[in-house]
Design a protein around this nucleic acid. Structure first.
Length: 890
DNA sequence: GTCGAGGGGTACC
DNA sequence: ATCAGACGTATTCGG
DNA sequence: CCGAATACGTCTGATGGTACCCCTCGAC
């Protein structure tokens, strides 16, 4: 039976799109995407979208209203709402169960069934080649770069003009468009697949899992070894005198090369060549060079901040080049990159004095100085520091200097790649030094994995690099081990669009689901005074007790209360540990967790235990280190057992994350519902006991899954909002709008009240189209009936006539200091705050809606209040307890 | 001189 | 945080 | 058995709101 028939009528067309979208199995492209892939043409994507795959008739027009209304009607009865959700989800899931073709090995045999319903029209894409026709069509955009296009790219490596880019994509699409949706022939495969799976799925999976990393390097290594093994003179920058400081120009040259290509392997090779050169000529500066490449001054937890942002930077450029701010801004808008702007500006001015050429060391020192400048007149002095650097910069140097100050190198080269490059450079260097031949692929692979592993357990170059120079890369593991006091990179989770996706991945294995609390990820490090194991960097007498954030920032000053309460919940005999947990705001009276917005209001510095305003409860979910031993290589099941044994829950102070190991869809389903009722964001799903359950922060960045409520059918709020303003895009989005200002409609005042900016969820194609479309509606000044904050800061770059309506999805609604939506309507504590959206993202255009059909202020208010009720329990203490700046009396 | 508002920056999500 | 796009690798199918 | 095409994972860089902290500047 086509699932569609089962849909709740109220949900209407929206459900049909989202529903099917979110329940698609992994291997399959959602119809929309597929659609776009197949049919993308610059003209009329709209029609393609709506006509073809959403069989979405008139109902659409009002569905949003309906939905909101639904919500409100059910608001008091909470349960009704919940039920509805459950139902939708069930439907979705069932639908999938029925029609999912075993895209992935490891799916059920039932999958052989042909799909029907929503996506029925769309042929199922299977692994492997579907049909002949595609060949010629796809060629145009082939995966390997075609000679011509490469030529093109090469000829203007930097700042390819947008027009060109658009043209290119358009061409691609045109080519792709020829591709015919082929009428899928293919039940056979799934049958055999199913069989294979039945026999040996686990082994196969496990084997491939473990081996993958090593094998996969093969081809890449070959390239690498070729590039790296050659010896001197391969790097385009001429050697500087050995032992002298690395010229900044050499680094910049490398940057330029890296930026010029989009190929990752090529970036990699440039990086390792340069690093090798550094190793050869000025090994002492390796650390600094690495820091510069990843654009950092020191380890994260040392809290070195530049304190420089766009504004100050512009000021500095302005002063140093003698141009007006206005001109600068214009350029910025056009070029989209302050670095380029700075470089160009400098070019127009002849430098009379020839300052000493910049070196990596001098730049580093300059930056550090800027970072440490503070106090009265600090900003001016910082600007002075920038000017000094800038005036010594030649050519491209200025560009990267500025970007470095901006904190975005925008090279397409991030830390991960640098690590790989470093390992390669190092191993080659070592071989050469020892007079041996170029290292074998195996050696290179080994070196790479060693460095990765070491870095993941001790992410601090200031320790690793000197050690590596001393003992060599292959022995690093022996000396650089995890230690309390150095924060690990936390393991992250991959977003999941449907519960079925979880099963898809974890089916047949032991896994667990935990609540995903809405707080701050926190890593607690502890060593008791006089612990029996000693650590090189820790004073034995004092021990250590520190807290780190998700990004390895030190949070101890922010949470003295947690540290002070440690002995309440750490069991005796636990001498040292590293605990992964979530700190959540806690309501002492109601004994329940509070929303994130509440947690945010905690002070960050100089917090004394006595005057903590927002109490925090710690929810532990993983133990990474215990009594002198790293647990990273233990299974989650074991780690968790140890955790349970080592700590004791104390109400309102510490708890273990609520978890269930149930394997059934229904179990997960209801667990999810529970978690949401308990004010959580959703669930985390983790493998329990295969080797995949090791804590592997860097090896596999997303080995956990998160299931968030706003993904699931019916549980996410979506709104239809009017576009009334926009901001010029930067970087990739130069010459388009980069973000937009949205508003809801207030029918009683006939005003448009701003509710949020939005800048994600658009495809490039969409952005281009949007720009082309909206340019014509730009207006000089905001309409008098636009209600928006007056601050200079908040104004968009351009205003529009109210014409276009977009569907936007959000996770939450929050009280806002800068947006005006529903001000005075919702239960906003009379503080004159409006409502805004948390994590807004663009879903699609609603060309079937007029601006005054947009979501209304009262609907927004309704949504907010409903959420408030859910959050605070039906009885909610002292009416509308969500008030953010409510004082919390005890 | 002191105080508060607002700009600018950074962190969290 | 969310999201899209590009690249690299693994897998599969047609010949 | 190979080449081509697809599927999937990883990495990168666009962009969101809010709160705090620090500095600046103007009012008194």
């Amino acid at each position: 039976m086509p699932p569609k028939a089962k849909k709740t009528p109220g949900a209407g067309a929206r459900q049909s799109t989202l529903g099917s979208f979110f329940t698609l199995p992994k291997g399959q492209k959602p119809p929309e995407l597929q659609q776009t892939k197949l049919k993308r043409t610059r003209a009329a994507p709209k029609t393609a979208l709506s006509s073809e795959n959403e069989d979405e008739p008139e109902g659409v027009k009002v569905d949003n209203q309906d939905e909101v209304m639904d919500g409100t009607e059910e608001a008091d009865g909470n349960t009704a709402k919940t039920k509805k959700r459950v139902r939708d989800e069930e439907v979705a899931v069932k639908a999938e169960e029925e029609e999912e073709p075993a895209t992935k090995r490891g799916r059920k045999a039932s999958a052989t069934k042909k799909k029907v319903g929503d996506e029925g029209a769309e042929p199922v894409k299977k692994r492997g080649r579907p049909a002949k026709t595609t060949a010629s069509a796809t060629k145009g955009k082939g995966k390997k770069v075609e000679p011509e296009s490469e030529e093109e790219a090469e000829s203007k490596p930097k700042s390819p003009t947008k027009a060109k880019k658009v043209a290119a994509t358009a061409a691609k699409k045109a080519a792709a468009a020829k591709k015919e949706p082929t009428p899928e022939p293919e039940p056979e495969a799934s049958a055999s697949e199913a069989e294979v799976e039945a026999e040996s799925e686990n082994e196969v999976e496990a084997a491939s899992e473990t081996e993958q990393p090593a094998i996969s390097q093969g081809a890449r290594k070959q390239v690498q070894s070729k590039l790296t093994a050659g010896g001197k003179g391969l790097h385009p920058y001429p050697d500087w005198a050995a032992g002298t400081p690395v010229p900044y120009a050499a680094l910049v040259k490398t940057f330029t090369l890296i930026e010029a290509t989009s190929k990752r392997l090529e970036k990699l090779s440039h990086t390792s060549l340069f690093l090798r050169q550094v190793l050869r000529l000025s090994p002492d500066e390796l650390l600094m060079v690495i820091h510069m490449m990843i654009n950092r001054l020191a380890a994260d937890y040392e809290g070195v901040e530049l304190g420089i942002g766009e504004s100050l930077l512009m000021k500095a450029i302005c002063e140093s080049c003698g141009r007006t701010m206005q001109k600068l801004k214009e350029d910025h808008k056009e070029v989209g990159d302050l670095g380029e702007v700075a470089m160009k500006s400098r070019n127009t001015q002849t430098t009379l004095f020839k300052p000493k050429p910049l070196t990596v060391a001098s730049v580093h020192a300059g930056l550090k100085e800027i970072a440490t400048t503070k106090g009265e007149g600090g900003q001016t002095r910082k600007v002075g520091g920038i000017k000094k650097l800038l005036s010594a910069a030649k050519g491209d140097e200025a560009k990267y200097l500025v970007r470095c100050l901006e904190g975005k190198l925008r090279l397409g080269l991030a830390e991960r790649t640098v690590i790989v490059a470093l390992s390669q450079a190092m191993i080659v260097h070592e071989a050469e030094k020892a007079g041996k031949k170029a290292p074998s692929l195996e050696q290179m692979t080994a070196a790479e994995s060693i460095l990765k592993e070491v870095y993941s357990s001790l992410p601090n170059y200031e320790i690793i690099i000197p050690e590596m120079m001393k003992v060599g890369i292959m022995k690093l593991k022996d000396t650089c081990k995890m230690q309390p006091g150095v924060p690990l990179k936390p393991m992250l989770a991959k977003p999941t669009k449907a519960i079925s996706e979880v099963l898809d991945r974890f089916e047949g294995k032991q896994f667990t689901c935990e609540y995903k609390y809405d707080g701050e990820r926190v890593q607690i490090h502890y060593v008791a005074p006089n612990a029996s194991t000693e650590f090189p960097t820790i004073d034995k007498e004092k021990g250590i007790a520190k807290i780190f954030s998700r990004n390895s920032e030190e949070l101890s000053p922010k949470y003295p209360d947690i540290l002070a309460a440690l002995d309440k919940w750490v069991q005796k005999g636990v001498e040292s540990f590293v605990l992964d947990c979530e700190a959540v705001a806690w309501d002492r009276e109601e004994k329940r967790v509070l929303p994130f917005q509440q947690l945010m209001t905690r002070k960050k510095k100089d917090v004394a235990v006595e005057d903590v305003k927002v109490k925090v409860c710690v929810f532990g979910f993983d133990l990474l280190f215990l009594n002198g031993k790293s647990l990273v290589q233990e299974t989650l099941a074991d780690r968790r057992k140890l955790m349970y044994k080592s700590f004791t829950p104390v109400l309102g102070e510490f708890a273990f994350a609520t978890a269930t190991d149930g394997q059934e869809l229904e179990t997960i389903q209801s667990f999810l519902e529970e978690s949401i009722k308990a004010s959580c964001e959703g669930l985390m799903v983790k493998m329990l006991d295969t080797s995949e359950s090791f804590y592997e922060p860097s090896k596999r960045s997303r080995n956990w899954l998160k299931v968030k409520k706003d993904y699931l059918a019916g549980a996410g709020d979506s709104l239809d909002l009017v576009v009334i303003g926009a901001y010029h895009g930067k970087g990739k989005r130069t010459s388009w709008y980069g973000a937009f200002l949205l508003a809801c409609y207030n029918p009683s005042s006939q005003n448009y009240e701003t509710i949020c900016n939005i800048g994600t969820g658009f495809s490039e194609e969409m952005l281009a189209k949007i720009h082309a479309h909206l340019v014509d509606f730009e207006i000089e000044k905001p309409k008098p009936y636009y209600i928006h904050a007056s601050g200079n800061m908040q104004q968009p770059d351009v205003w529009f006539e109210p014409k276009v309506v977009w569907e936007v999805k959000t996770a939450d609604l929050s009280l806002s200091p800068k947006y005006m939506a529903a001000k005075g309507i919702a239960d906003t504590e009379g503080k004159g705050r409006g409502i805004s959206l948390r994590f807004p993202r663009f879903i699609r255009e609603r060309d079937d809606k007029k601006p005054d059909d947009a979501t209304t202020s009262s609907q927004v208010a309704e949504m907010y209040n409903r959420q408030d009720v859910v959050m605070n329990g039906v009885n909610g203490k002292k009416g509308g307890a969500g008030g953010v700046d409510d004082d919390f009396e005890y």
